[in-house]
Amino acid sequence: MKILLDHKQLDITLQRLAHQLAENHLTFHDTVIIGIQPRGIWLSQRIARIVQEITTGNVQYGKLDITFYRDDIHQQGDMHLPAHTDIPFSIEDKSVVLVDDVLHTGRTIRAAMDALIDFGRPKKVELLVLIDRRFSRELPIQPDYVGRTIDTIITQKVKVYWQEKDNKDEVVLLD
């Protein structure tokens, strides 16, 4: 097991990501942040909170469940149980920042984009991830904002712990 980000590094990384978002968007009037269920929620909540602190105006934040859009529904023994989708605003003509904790094969993001399009036609979709496992993509999908880029092999696992859920802030690489 290797610690990729400890509590303090994670905090600095989140601050940087939020500031990069604010730098590129100036105002969040036409930009919304949407976290991908289940694990992107914690990251997106933190990012939305920091962005709210450093910008003026209300930052709109939602949650998107992608269970019914997955391409592996019948490849696993068990069914994935859905989580709640909560997008209490229109995404029509908005810039959407999709947020997930770990980017690996890119299949989750493909499903998320399909799910998102069912809610309207966004002007632009960007992707923010905490950990980018590069060179392991199965689809042509790249992030716009990255916390940490790492090289991994398929058997390794990246685990992200959040204070709100796991009582600690930490990102580790498991062999």
Binding site: T67, F68, L81, H84, D118, F119, G120
Partner: peptide, 20 residues
């Protein structure tokens, strides 16, 4: 629990998911 989520799907403008 699963029906709760489908009920939410049925309230969207596109009342359909590609699951099956």
């Amino acid at each position: 629990q699963t029906a709760d989520n489908f009920k939410q799907v049925l309230q969207r403008s596109i009342r359909k998911v590609p699951a099956l």
